[in-house]
């Protein structure tokens, strides 16, 4: 079976027969003939006849990877943040911010490309840049740079600001599991003021296996 997590920027693919995972640019995928047996994600309906709700896939995948039914997992995507909290295998809480203030992963990538840097290689910032959303945050970055602040410090503060937003969005827990491409960004993970356990970017695909 071919499973797909068709996100806004990237598509994560699992071929269950070969047990092969890969990531491709969603714009390239949309131009291709690839069709999935089952898929989730913002653009899933364009590439499959069987769409699974992303948050449900996140819950099922997390449960499989974590190994029990007590967890808080947050998926930080290009344009949205969503979380689900389970207690004793039962639903406890969820939210999904897909519009205002949510173009987060996308903003980080845009800035990395613009400044030709890798935020994951930067040192954690002590101060966070007050970021209400990715786009507004970017305006602040350019203001800080024009004031003479060092680019890497400003970008690290921006990433910390995003981490603070996520932390507040999930109601300031003591620890949580992280899903999504930002699991590979150590600066992002270290910018949280609580324990973060990264599950990787294929959590939703693990969830799709269950359908």
């Amino acid at each position: 079976m071919l499973l797909g997590d068709v996100g806004t920027s990237y598509t994560k693919i699992l071929d269950t027969e070969k047990e092969e995972y890969k990531v491709m640019n969603t714009l390239d995928l949309l131009k291709s003939e690839v069709r999935f047996d089952i898929a989730c994600g913002h653009n899933a309906k364009l590439k499959t006849d069987r769409v699974v709700n992303e948050l449900v896939a996140l819950e099922k995948g997390s449960r499989e990877l974590i190994g029990d039914g007590n967890f808080l997992v947050v998926d930080v995507g290009s344009r949205d943040i969503k979380y689900v909290k389970m207690k004793g295998n039962k639903y406890e809480e969820m939210d999904w911010n897909a519009l205002c203030g949510a173009t987060l992963g996308f903003s980080i990538e845009l800035l990395e490309n613009h400044f030709n840097v890798k935020t994951s290689e930067m040192e954690k910032a002590s101060q966070s840049l007050g970021v209400t959303c990715g786009v507004l945050g970017m305006a602040k970055i350019f203001d800080k740079i024009s004031e003479g602040c060092e680019i890497n410090n400003v970008l690290a503060s921006f990433v910390k600001g995003i981490a603070e937003n996520v932390y507040r969005f999930i109601n300031k827990p003591e620890s949580f599991y992280l899903s999504g491409g930002l699991c590979n960004n150590t600066l992002f993970i270290n910018s949280f003021r609580c324990k973060v356990e990264p599950l990787g970017r294929f959590v939703l695909l693990e969830g799709l296996r269950k359908f």
């Binding site: 948050l55 639903y91 406890e92 969820m94 897909a98």
Partner: peptide, 27 residues
């Protein structure tokens, strides 16, 4: 009450639809 709060302006969009769908399925 451990419910799901949704605020909708004018016409419902896909994000809110997905959120409600997830809440119903998870419960």
């Amino acid at each position: 009450h451990n419910g799901l709060y949704v605020e909708v302006d004018d016409v419902i969009d896909n994000s809110v639809k997905s959120k409600i769908e997830a809440y119903l399925l998870l419960n």
